[in-house]
Amino acid sequence: MNSTPAPRPVTRRQFLGRVSAASALALAPRSLFAQAAAGRKLGVALVGLGGYSTGQLGPALRLTSHCQLTGVVTGSVEKGKKWAADYGFPETSIYDYSTMARLADNPAIDIVYVVTPNGLHAEHAIAAAQAGKHVICEKPMANTVADCDAIIAACQKAGVRLGIGYRLHYDPTHAELRRLARTQEFGPFLKMDGGFGFTMGRSQWRAQKKLAGGGPLMDLGVYVLQEALMASGEVPPVALTARELPKLRPEFFVDVEETIEWTLEFANGARATGWTSYNANRNDFRAEAKDGWYEISSAYGYKGQKAVTSRGPVTVTPPASQQALQMDAFARDVLDGTPSLVPGEMGRRDMVMVEAIYASAAAGGKRVELKF
């Protein structure tokens, strides 16, 4: 029996997305292709200079081969000036959130990376697209599927590329999982389980529903969903069930979940259980097939992944920076007109699952059928 799922028909959304990508390539300035031939790096502006930009993206942009930091968008002029001095771009390339339209006048900036709180992603990604800049939007793509649609539409209208900050797609240990899913050397993965959580020690925007959209599911659980979809060969689930666990610190997690778990159901009979929490530690994923298995610990971190299969350890050379690989890949896609591994449609897909998980948990674990 052939266990490979039959190809799904192309939906109207997918067709329009492909047409948009082709149109964007046709509209791309010829100067970009000249820049690629000349080896010129594309300029990146970071929108939001919080912990992720400071600790990960900024340092990664010192390691990239195809892009470099050429501007910032921040609410702090002093912080912007410090970044300009540290990274060697002019202070005229410092913008605030109300002046993002002026990015259109800066030819040194080709790509805008949105790294603000989740609830601001749509506003800032749309502003970047309207300024004619290619957009990377940090995960989760937005607080709602409707916001994801608005971002995709804005990028299509502007003829710019859109990618999501899914760095793990570029990590070699996760690439091995994707390869096994694609080749089905062990057969299809039919039993999957993963979890990601930590104990949040202080109040922050990630525990505020207005800015974060939810609790750990929006921040950490998206990684577990991503991993399950990698193991499925990017075939989306057909339904899911979920439940929120009782809060141990209700005074801290007032309007978001503290811990939540779910089960994804796939058309071929596969099941993927997931868990995420802001009050317990976990960082793992395992996928089992008839003829083998894959397991990874420290699965979702910036480094330190350790993967093993039923054949033995996965031996890879760890990258100096997952984020550098991710941003370089996006820059090359812009320059070469190649499809992204992590397009906006993938970010939207994941938000469909997130919304369904919340809906199922709110309905006492009711089974929710998924429509993408």
Rank of each mutant, 00 (worst) to 15 (best):
E355G: 12
T199C: 11
K247M: 05
A84S: 15
K303H: 12
R349Y: 12
R311M: 09
A22M: 14
P250R: 00
V256L: 04
D333E: 15
G55L: 14
Q204H: 11
Q305S: 06
L220Y: 01
P172W: 15
V222F: 07
A212D: 03
V224L: 06
E78V: 11
N143V: 14
V222T: 09
A125R: 07
C155A: 02
K303S: 15
P5S: 08
K139D: 03
S98P: 00
T92C: 01
Y52I: 11
F330H: 10
K303Y: 15
A307T: 07
A128V: 06
R178C: 04
K157R: 13
D147C: 07
V10A: 10
M218G: 06
K290P: 01
G221S: 03
F186W: 13
T99I: 02
R348L: 09
Y52G: 10
R102P: 00
G165T: 04
Y95T: 00
Y300F: 15
I296R: 10
V73Q: 01
E345N: 08
T173I: 02
A146M: 06
A6I: 12
P188K: 04
A22F: 12
T99H: 01
G337P: 04
A150I: 06
I94K: 00
A131G: 07
A146Y: 08
I136A: 06
L248E: 13
P9S: 10
E138L: 09
T4I: 13
S232P: 06
R349C: 08
T70M: 11
F196C: 02
L69V: 06
K81Y: 04
L177A: 02
A363P: 10
E355L: 05
M141G: 02
E244P: 03
G43L: 07
F33E: 11
S310C: 08
E138S: 15
A129S: 07
A272F: 02
A363M: 08
K133F: 04
L177F: 08
R40L: 07
S23N: 09
Y358V: 01
P216Y: 07
D333T: 12
G195I: 05
F15S: 13
F33D: 09
A38N: 14
I136E: 01
V224M: 01
I151R: 07
R271A: 10
P140S: 07
T116D: 08
V72R: 03
S297W: 12
K366C: 00
V256Q: 03
A122L: 04
F33W: 13
C148A: 13
L42K: 08
